[in-house]
Every structure is written in C-alpha cells, then in structure tokens.
Design a protein around this nucleic acid. Sequence first.
DNA 1: ACGCTCACG
DNA 2: GACGTACGTGAGCGTA
Length: 932
Amino acid sequence: MGEAFGKGCHLHLIDGSAFIFRAYHALPPLTRKSDGLPVGAVAGFCNMLWKYVQEDAGSNAPTHAAVIFDHSSKTFRNEIYNAYKANRPEPPEDLRPQFPLTRDATRAFNIACIETEGFEADDIIAAYACRAREAGGRVTIVSSDKDLMQLVGDGVEMLDPIKNKAIGPDEVFEKFGVGPDRVVDVQALAGDAVDNVPGAPGIGIKTAALLIQEFGDLEALLERAGEIKQPKRRQTLIDHAEQIRVSKRLVQLDCNTPLDVPLEELGVQAPDPARLLSFLTDMEFRTLTNRVAEKLGAEAPAVKAAPQSEAPAAPELPAIDITGYETVTDMAALQTWVDAIREAGEVAFDTETTSLDDMRAVLVGISLALAPGRACYIPFGHVSGSDDLFGSAQPVAGQLPMAEVLAALRPVLEDASILKIGQNVKYDWKLLARNGIRMAPVADTMLMSYALNAGTHNHGMDELAERYLGHKCIPIKDLIGSGKSQIHFGQVAIDKAAPYAAEDAEVTLRLYRHFAPMLPAERVVTVYHTLEAPMIPVLGQMEMTGVKVDTQVLSRMSGAFAQKMAQLEDEIYGLAGGSFNIGSPKQLGEILFDRMGLAGGKQGKTGAFSTSADVLEDLAAEGHDLPARVLDWRQISKLKSTYTDALPTYVNPDTGRVHTCYSIAGAQTGRLASTEPNLQNIPIRTDEGRRIRQAFIAPEGHRLVSLDYSQIELRILAHVADIPALKQAFREGIDIHAMTASQMFGVPVEGMDPMIRRRAKAINFGVIYGISGFGLSRNLRIPRAEAQSFIDTYFERFPEIRAYMDRTVADAKADGSVRTLFGRRINTPGINQSGPAAGGARRAAINAPIQGAAADIIRRAMIRMPAAIEGMPARMLLQVHDELVFEVEENAVEPLIARAREVMEAAAEPAVKLSVPLVVDAGQGANWAEAH
DNA sequence: ACGCTCACG
DNA sequence: GACGTACGTGAGCGTA
C-alpha cells in the first residue's frame, strides 16, 4: 500500500492543534441546531481544511500530506522538567467535545490523521520532516508556531496558513536573530512563558540572539560565560547554566519520535464526496456542505432541520441559478411584476447606474426579486457605442422608456405598506430621489449585517453573499472591465447585464431572509430600527444638499502654498547638498541618517528609516535645520495636495457644491465615515490649515452654523464608569481637565500652571483609548517612569475607571462583543488572542463603548433634526463626529441654534437618562472657519 | 497593492 | 527587564 517517498516528493505536515485553537478563537460559539452540540471550532477547522484543499498550490502542491494532533498531557519533557507546560490552562469546556470531531473531519477530507499517545505533535512533525528530508523530498509545515522554526532549512519550510506566507531561513532569522540551526539555543536562553520553559532570567530573544551570535553556540557560551562583559548578565548565565541546559532539552524537538504510520502511507488522495458530504451534513454545516457539493459536482444531502421545539426551520433553499431570470421589455410584463409585488408586500431590488458616484450617476435599469429563483431585470438606459470623437451613444432598441418604468414602479416604491429591501439602500434612495421618487419604507441588508456583525467583517454584498449564502457573485469587473478601458453599466449588453443585476436582487432578498430573523434573536433589532435604518433618508438628504465651496479662495491659497514650497525646497536642497524628492520618506531617510549621519534613525519592519513628524521634531529640537524645514514643507504639501488642489475637483458641475458620501457601516464603532471627499478631516489645528475652512461658505443671505458637543466622550465615560468626582464636575460645569489636575496633584484650580492642566488633559484623553505609560510619555515627551506614575495616581484617585476597564474587557472575553449604552454591539474577535495583538484588541474593546455611545447620541440627534427644524429656512449639511453644520438664512440663525441645541442636548433621552448633562457649543459665520 | 505620513474627532 | 503600546477614520504620495 502507498507510494514510495523520495526525490520529487513533497510532504505537507499540518499542525492540527494550532488549526483547532485558531478556529475556536476566530469564530463565535456556534452550536449544532438539532442538539446544541458546540461545533464552532469544528466549523472553522473544516473551513480551513477546505480552503487548504482547494488552494492551487502550483509547484508546491503536496504529493503526501498529514494532519498532526497532540494526544496527551504528559510527555518525556515532564520527566526532564515536571513543570513543563504547567501554566497551560485547561481547554475551554465547549472546546473539549470538539477535539474528536476534528479528527473525524480530517478523515472525512481523506487526509491522514496522526496522533500518538504520549507524544507532542511538534515531535511527530519533527520526525516526519527528518525522514522526508533524509529521503530527498521536500517538506512544508503548515503552521506559524515558532517552536517548529528550528526544523526549517534543507528542503523544509513553513507556511503560515493565515497570512499565506512562506517561512524560510530568512524569516526565522528575522524572528530569532539567528539561523534555524541555532534557534533552540536562543529559545533555551530566552525561555517561554507559555510553555513554562524557564530559560535564563532577564534574557529575552534579542539578548539571547546577541550572545549566540557572539559565542557561536550555546555550549560555547556557557563554557565561556566568564567572558561576558556585563556583570549582571555574566552572573545570570553562570548561575543558571544547568537550568538553561534543561531548557534546551525542553525546546529541542525529537527527530527520533516513533512513527506509527510510515511516510509512504501519507500519499495524497482526493476526498470521497459521499463521505465528506455525509460528515458535513451531519455537522449541519449548510453553507460549507453546499460549497463542497458544488465543487465536487455531487448532490448535497439536505441538512437536518432544527427540532420542532425551535422556530420552524426555513425550508432548504435551492442554489442561486442566474440563468433563469426574466428581462422585462414591455409594459404588460412590468405590470405583472408590479401586481406581484403588491401581493407579496415586499420586494428586493437593486438599481444599475452609470457611476459609483450617486450624485453624477444616471439610472440605466432596475432589478427586482420576489422569491429565490424569481427575479427580473428592467433595462431602460442601455446604449451601444460611446460618446467620443467618432459618434455618440445610441439607445439599445427594445427597452421601455425610463419615465414609464419609474411611473409604473413609483406607486409601490412610495407605498407605505410595501417594504423595499436593498443592499446599501442610501445609494438607491438618492438615485430615486434625484428622479423625484421618495422611496419608503426600506430595509437594508448592509445595515442589518452592520448591526449584527460590526467588528467581525465588512458588509459589502459580495462578501456577505459568500459568507452567508455560500454564493460567489458575478464580479462587476467581468462586465465593465477595469482601469482605462472601463465602461459604464449602461454600455454593457443587456443579455450580460440582466443576470448580474437580477442576481444582486436575489442575493439581497436571501440576505434579508437570513438576517431579519437574527436581529431580535441577537438583540440588535432596536439598534437597527432606531440607529441604522433611519439614517438613510437623513444622510441621503444631507449628501444631496452638499456644501458650497469657494474654489477661488482655494486656488489663491494653492498658489501661495506653491511659492512657499518652492522656497523651502531651495533651502532644503541647500542644507542637504543636493536635490532629492522630499516627498519620498525613503530618500529623506537616507539623506538624514546615511548621508548626514544624524542619530536617532530607527528602522521599521520594512527596514526603512522612520521620518514621521515625531522623529523630525526631535531632530529639529536638537537644532538641525533640515528636518525643521522638511516639517514645514510637509505641512504645506499636505494642505495643498489634499485640500486646496483636490477639493475643487469634487465640486459637482450640476449643483456647484461638494457632495461628500457618508458610510453608515464603515467604522466599527458606529461612527460615520466621510469619503470622496472626506469632509471630516478638514484642517483646524494649525492657523495655516484652519484657513482652508474659509473656503466652506454660506451662499448669499445665509450663514453657516456649527454646533458641537463639549467633551462628549469624557461625559459618557463619567456616566458608564460611574465616577462621582467626574460626574460632579460636569454637573457643576467646571473645567474638567483643571479639575482632574487639581485632584491628581493636589493644586487649586485657581491660578493653575497650564503645563499641569495640559498633562491632565492628555491623561483624560489617553484613558479613553486604553492608556499606557509608554504612550503617555511619548505624547507628553516626558520620561516613561514619570508618565507611569501619573497614570498610577490617576487610577488611584479615580478607581472606578480601572473597574470599568476590567469589567469591559471581561465582558468582551465572555461575550465576544461589547455594547454601547444604546445596545449597539461591537464584536471583539481578537480579544482572546495572546501576544502583542492582545493589547490592541483590549484597548479597542475599552474604547468602543465610549466612542460608540457618542456616535449613537449624535445619530439620534440627526434622525430627529429634520422634523425639529421643519419649516425653518435651514438645512443640515455636515457631521463631524461630535459636530453638526447647518446652512441657515441669516435672519433665522438664533432660532435654529436654539432648536438644534435642544435636540442635541436631549438626544440620549428617553432611551438613556445620563447622569451628566450634555452641553452643546454653537458658533456662526459666513464660513466654516468663523462658525466653528 | 501597500506602506508611510498626516489631516480630523 | 523580553515585547509592543493610545481609539476611530480617509487621502495622497512614493515604491514595488
């Protein structure tokens, strides 16, 4: 049995245990519908295996493969050192029953499944790798575990399955500072907290690598430890020599581990479709089952329905078939669809247009879907040819006129009793609004996904279809191409456009049926209905209104910037002794740190010097002129290219105004994001930059009014963390940063040193972000120890904050998500990771409920605003996270401010009664600079 | 396509 | 004293 293994063969060894833990932590705790068996890790494991099997590895394709598992807690290493891996926590309760299932899964995929009682997976992998190497074959270890890196080299390499990146000797060197053959020496010295390998106290990988580089190998080092210059380090190595030798035996993998299954029997075989599908069906993995069935060309057995006690299971849906859609070309057929929509009471739809920019786009067709398999496309704006030198675009024959299509659809689109279901509805809403149709009511699958899955993944249709329907949509590029030769959708032939457009409608319908029942079940139905869906008409209207921009002001500024830049360029070239591209960080770094030999050059992971403002400011402070000039140049260059030059290109020729586009589901926390152009990052912090705001103007007879929440995030923190001192200060309306400083340093608020207040302010902000001593020290440019002692004092004085942070992180770990005061859920998939990534996930989890609640509050204000200012000669134009900008007739400025302020200050109510007041500051002027 | 840098809250 | 380090965004530029 089996194929001989030798030259030309390629063995893949998959680290099964790592796969399982990765899968477990990456996925929410899924259970099998029929009996509640936890299967999340099995699902993830199967997805990873399937992806691995599917991947076309080309010349790296395996001829032999096996998945290796751990099987036992006690191994020979415990005889060497009884505390080995003693720190390992027990696997979670709901993971344990999944271990045997992952073995079954491996076998179902027809991949050899290897485990041996009393041996660790790493040693088995080592033994196979050695045998394969001896036989002259190649080996790929599918894992990113650093403990396996000692095996790399001589035809053995690793593959990080997540990053899909090969790990060879170079990458090992990057990680350990030595080649694969000396990795064990470094590990022996550095030890490993996770596996409880002691190593040498106080020696980490960096130091270990230096020592090994200097002395050649571990034995030489230990014998000649007396030669080490640093006294402390020398003593450590002498004192702990034995412990280090033991550590080496712990980290050294054993190539002589007995192998129950010989190499020859690991030959790759295609999975047996029946067996694999029966396993997946048994697990009730519907999506994966369908995907696998489709690929293997086999019939997918029906996934077992949920038991009667649950809500009745949805009937099994047929796969999406894009060949059977109708193209509507006459009024009778269209009327049949309209009647059917009335009958159904809801319809999924999608609009096709000539552009992604919804303020310039022209409608070319509409697709509808009423049921799986029942969808159509109504083309009306398709053309042949294009408007160019050689002729003009001609309408394609056989289409209904747009006016008639819209007239026929208008009654259902505006019918309050018929639900219109779309994906990213704001886009379609605006196109219809531009054609005089006020569509309502609507449901948006993108926003449903956002309410359910913020933090887990993005919410574009292609991604949702693949993830939740197991369906790959036709890529738009297949129709319109890309790059220079790209055409618009109206230029696509109707017989190609129809399946694409109708598919989108059907996918939207299926996504709606998938997500809608989950909203109440996941307790985000209120968030969806009060904070997401109502934003569609509000933002749609703001975006259509746009803001007036004075391009002449910008153009004059641009000219002045150009002059100033030219002057700075001359000075910089003079100082550098030659010209170079100042805008290239690479060239600048070489000039500063190589040519001029300045100190403080720090190289990042790409090996390039950092030339960020931080670094340049330090150099400038040491008295170097060139970095100071570059800082000036950079600032002006930024203002010119991003603002004065780019903004005028966004002025819409039809309206003469700039129409940004807000993403409702872009940020993880509930904040909006503004694009094309981004009007949420217009300069204000420097005087020069602030002048850009003079170009945002009110038309004749009008004023711009800006209202912004004062300290909203700190107020929310005071409320949710329940901090009496902070709450009282806000109630009394005193300077919050001065109060903090006074409490921390015991100085009176009266006559306070501005520096002290500045520090307190930095801490107040830092705390919202999950502060560290390092971060604060860098921000304030003070020694780390000092920064740390500030933080310690702060937590001592306001102990509720530490409690809030701990509570939030604990919730995130337990639930995989955190929530805002208003119920918005933000998933925290990375929170149970270990290593450096864990810190970031922790801070994000602490910040999300605060930033998110502030976002919820201003959303609530915006949603109420149109009704509140109804009848006033005022329009809401912009949102900048804690600020709303209005355009108002001059004589109505004061009433508008009063009304809008009232709405904003009461926006949390009645859902939440905050224990601190919300305060809104207002300003007004002829332009945004004056108003703010 | 990706990293760097920098604009905002 | 090993390791990395403030949260959330989008745009323009240089480089590969």
